[in-house]
Computed example of a mutant assay.
Amino acid sequence: MRIIAGDWRGRKLIAPKGDTTRPTADRTRETLFNMLNSRLGAFNDLAVADLFAGSGALGLEALSRGAGSCLFVEDDRDALKALKTNVAALDTSRRATVQAGSVMSLGPAKVPHDLILLDPPYYTGAGVVALDRMTRLGWIGPATWIALETAFNEDVECKGLKTETDRKVGKAKLTLLRLS
């Protein structure tokens, strides 16, 4: 696993030990960021949330491309260890906040985030449940872009959100959503 583009292009990331976490493949991450880049234009100074963060590859990719900050939320102990190691290796602790715990325990947001990245376990519906909660708690505003990775054959329907586009990449499906 490596950073695809930006300041840390080519830097290697470590993945959590074991098989409880499924890191997003480089090709899938590259496709996702191409989809986002064509809509956002640039990542400069964006406030990003990487939920179900695992190794942090998605949020770290956004930081490498110029995002101003990233909140990483993860509850698996091995994944948290890998995430903290990756943040330290890239020396980005001043722009990265790592929160141990469930995405479902997040409280109300002070302001909406610009970009929310979700890579929940496949076939659990956890991403849709999290997005419903986050919409109600003010994490998602009119300018927010949401990227949700699911298994290629999972349906994504989120109350209050509309699908802007989706793309199948191998075993994954990438869905970009906005407020409806």
Rank of each mutant, 00 (worst) to 15 (best):
residue 93 S to R: 14
residue 168 K to D: 04
residue 12 K to T: 15
residue 129 V to C: 08
residue 112 P to F: 03
residue 131 L to I: 01
residue 145 W to A: 08
residue 163 T to N: 07
residue 66 G to Q: 09
residue 155 D to C: 03
residue 178 R to G: 02
residue 59 G to T: 11
residue 46 L to D: 04
residue 87 V to H: 08
residue 52 F to K: 05
residue 144 T to L: 00
residue 68 G to Q: 11
residue 57 A to K: 05
residue 125 G to D: 07
residue 130 A to M: 04
residue 105 S to A: 12
residue 9 R to I: 09
residue 178 R to H: 13
residue 145 W to L: 15
residue 34 N to C: 10
residue 129 V to G: 07
residue 111 V to F: 06
residue 105 S to L: 07
residue 117 L to N: 03
residue 44 N to V: 12
residue 139 W to S: 04
residue 98 V to Y: 10
residue 81 K to D: 08
residue 43 F to A: 10
residue 112 P to M: 08
residue 155 D to A: 12
residue 4 I to D: 05
residue 127 G to I: 01
residue 149 E to G: 00
residue 176 L to N: 04
residue 167 R to H: 07
residue 165 T to A: 14
residue 32 L to W: 02
residue 9 R to D: 07
residue 30 E to A: 10
residue 163 T to S: 12
residue 149 E to W: 06
residue 110 K to H: 12
residue 143 A to V: 10
residue 34 N to F: 09
residue 56 G to S: 13
residue 103 V to R: 00
residue 24 T to M: 13
residue 91 D to T: 14
residue 6 G to K: 12
residue 20 T to I: 06
residue 112 P to S: 09
residue 131 L to M: 03
residue 37 N to Q: 11
residue 62 A to H: 02
residue 117 L to T: 01
residue 17 K to S: 13
residue 96 A to T: 02
residue 139 W to Y: 08
residue 27 R to E: 07
residue 1 M to D: 11
residue 148 L to G: 00
residue 163 T to C: 12
residue 148 L to T: 00
residue 8 W to R: 12
residue 128 V to I: 12
residue 10 G to S: 06
residue 177 L to C: 02
residue 14 I to G: 00
residue 123 Y to K: 15
residue 60 L to Y: 02
residue 59 G to D: 09
residue 50 D to F: 02
residue 96 A to I: 01
residue 135 T to K: 14
residue 177 L to T: 04
residue 122 Y to L: 11
residue 140 I to P: 01
